[in-house]
Design a protein around this nucleic acid. Structure first.
Lengths: 205, 205
DNA sequence: GTCACACTGGACCGTACAGTTTGATCGTGA
DNA sequence: TCACGATCAAACTGTACGGTCCAGTGTGAC
């Protein structure tokens, strides 16, 4: 990687960071390209060199913020015992609320929900991004736990919904409608939710 | 009510209906006042007589679509037995998914989430509107059920979140990210969720 | 040293759009 | 029948904004 390349990457980063700040604070419609170039300390021509259109900027913002990796990385993939399963669920809950309630991510989700559903490329992107994956990952995990005999459920998809839904409610019901960022819920509460959920899929009657 | 009043109300309705159609299809930013006046078959002057600004139109749209009455009206307020409680929860789940997945309401929620959180008046409005009330109403119901001995929970608020979250996930995780409207989930699925939830708050192990 | 290229600042273009104004027409209530 | 208020169509205003263009400056690669 040459020095020019490095400088180019830095410029791109610098622009995207500025755009992020503005998107978070003023939304997509409320952010003009002039404002971005000024906030980034970069001429408009340079801005347009790195992001040929405003939609590209939005796209980059969303892909960056909603990359699903970290959330799922935090979760041990293959719990073998009830205790491990419980811990895995608590970690998932913590990870989801901890990350998704951060202002840039909440803002990205807001934008996806409002603008992106009309922009074709972004729709596909969302399906593979964070919240689109939540139900599927949880369903797979629970199905696996069921075959291992750790839990009992005839409908892993619905059981997953029960759990994921309650966790995601911190984002959907509390986070979205608030102006100031919402503090992540206390771990004790998440543990309560996990334990309640585990009761609903407990092996024995 | 004089004939003029009646005519005025009809005109207002006619405009709001047209605006609703456009907001649903193209969002707030994508809907121009020219388009509204044309869709309503009404001159711009008349449009502005009834709605002095575009924000007023948005406000009226949201208040109309997100009035919480019907959803809660469908739910029997005071279940006295376990069976009644179960039925009450199933009805709530049906009512919430049935209504909130309808295109105009999903659109209204999208708009609230994206635009309205910056507009002060709308924020207050949202708190008393539909999704803002869900958790509180459910919490009250469950707390009451707990004192009646129908269920057992030390944290009615979290139990409510477990249930409401799973139901609302149909809106938040499936509805928001889709383009074409999402069919409401089969009643059997909702019953599954209710029964699973009830297991998590069952009186006796 | 020089060439290509990134970058800057700012002017510029076209357009879309919220909201206003005008002047004519129509319906209704007295 | 008359007058007033509601309505209409359409032109108009001001502005904000996405995107382009230009002339000039710095800088790394060879």
């Amino acid at each position: 990687m040459t020095a020019t390349d490095r400088r180019a990457a830095a410029k791109r980063e610098q622009i995207l960071t500025a755009a992020t700040r503005l998107f978070v604070r003023h939304g997509y419609g409320g952010t003009s390209m002039d404002a971005v170039s000024s906030e980034a300390g970069v001429s408009k021509q340079t801005l347009y060199r790195y992001f040929p259109s405003k939609a590209d900027l939005l796209s980059a913002f969303i892909t960056t913020e909603l990359a699903p990796h970290e959330v799922f990385a935090a979760v041990p993939a293959e719990p073998e015992t009830e205790a491990e399963l419980r811990q895995s669920l608590v970690l998932l809950a913590q990870s989801v609320t901890g990350r998704l309630l951060q202002p840039p991510i909440t803002a990205a989700l807001r934008l996806v929900i409002s603008e992106a559903f009309r922009i074709t490329e972004l729709r596909d992107l969302v399906r593979t991004a964070l919240p689109g994956q939540l139900l599927e990952v949880a369903t797979r995990q629970l199905a696996r736990a069921a075959t291992l005999g750790l839990i009992r459920t005839t409908r892993p998809d619905l059981s997953a919904r029960l759990f994921v839904g309650s966790v995601f409610s911190y984002v959907a019901l509390d986070g979205f409608l608030r102006v100031s960022p919402l503090a992540p819920p206390p771990v004790a509460d998440l543990e309560f939710l996990v334990d309640a959920f585990l009761l609903s899929v407990a092996i024995e009657p």
